[in-house]
C-alpha cells in the first residue's frame, strides 16, 4: 500500500478533447494528485502566469507565485499551440523550466517522441493513458523538487544530497528534507473520502 503521507502534488493537465480531459483528471485524482485541467496550450500558459511576449519571460512581480504547479501533462496533438510548442515555451522560460513536462499522444511515432524528449520532456505517454502510468509521475516531481532543494541548500552541503534525495519515500526518518515537510501536513483529510465509501456488490 503506497497511499502516501504527502501533500497532494498539483498537476496541470492540458488536452483539447473533453472526454480525454475527464479521463486524465480522474486518473490523476485517483492517484491522489490535485488537478487543474485546461483545453489549450495558451490557457495553460495563462494559468502558469506566462504571457505571450517571449522576450519578457516573467515580470518580477510579487504575485508570480500564486499558482504552484508541480507537473504539466499535455496532449501533443492540439489545434493552435501543440503540446510540443507548449513544451518549448515552458523550457524557454526561466521561471517555468524546472516544472516537469509529460507529453501524451495517441500516435506511436518514434521521431516525435525523441523530439519531445530532446526538447526537455520528462516522459512520453501513449494514449489512452492508464492508471499504471500515473506512478511514473511522482519520481519526476520529486526529482525536480530535489533539484530545487539542492540549489537552495547548495551552500550547506554539496555532495551527499543527490544520493538521498533520489529515494525520498523515507517514512519516518526524522531528517526528511525540510522543503517537503511543511507540505506534508494537510494530507489526511485528502485521502479520507476514498476510504469511507461503502462498496456494494
Amino acid at each position: 500500500m503506497a497511499v502516501a503521507i504527502e501533500a497532494p502534488f498539483h498537476v496541470l493537465a492540458v488536452d483539447d478533447s473533453l472526454p480525454d480531459r475527464k479521463l486524465i483528471e480522474r486518473l490523476l485524482k485517483t492517484s491522489s494528485f490535485q488537478v487543474t485541467t485546461v483545453d489549450s496550450g495558451s490557457k495553460a500558459l495563462e494559468f502558469l502566469g506566462l504571457h505571450d511576449h517571449e522576450d519578457s519571460p516573467i515580470s518580477t512581480q510579487s504575485d508570480q507565485q500564486e499558482v504552484a504547479v508541480n507537473l504539466i501533462i499535455t496532449d501533443y496533438c492540439m489545434p493552435g499551440m501543440t503540446g510540443y510548442d507548449l513544451l518549448k515555451k515552458i523550457k524557454e522560460s526561466s521561471y517555468l523550466r524546472d516544472i516537469p513536462v509529460v507529453i501524451m499522444s495517441s500516435d506511436n511515432i518514434p521521431s516525435r517522441i525523441n523530439r519531445c524528449l530532446e526538447e526537455g520532456a520528462d516522459e512520453f505517454f501513449l494514449k489512452p493513458v492508464r492508471l499504471s502510468d500515473m506512478s511514473k509521475l511522482k519520481p519526476h516531481i520529486l526529482k525536480s523538487r530535489c533539484k530545487e532543494h539542492y540549489q537552495q541548500e547548495q551552500n550547506l552541503q554539496s555532495n551527499s544530497e543527490s544520493n538521498n534525495s533520489s529515494n525520498p519515500t523515507s517514512e519516518n526518518s526524522s531528517s526528511s528534507t525540510s522543503s517537503n515537510s511543511h507540505k506534508r501536513k494537510a494530507v489526511d483529510e485528502e485521502i479520507l473520502p476514498h476510504t469511507i465509501r461503502p462498496r456494494h456488490s
Binding site: S17, P19, D20, L23, C77, S106, K127, P128
Partner: peptide, 12 residues
C-alpha cells in the same frame, strides 16, 4: 477522424 479515433480509444 484522428480526433474521433483518439476519443474512441480513450473510452475503449
Amino acid at each position: 477522424v484522428h480526433q474521433l479515433k483518439g476519443s474512441s480509444a480513450s473510452v475503449g
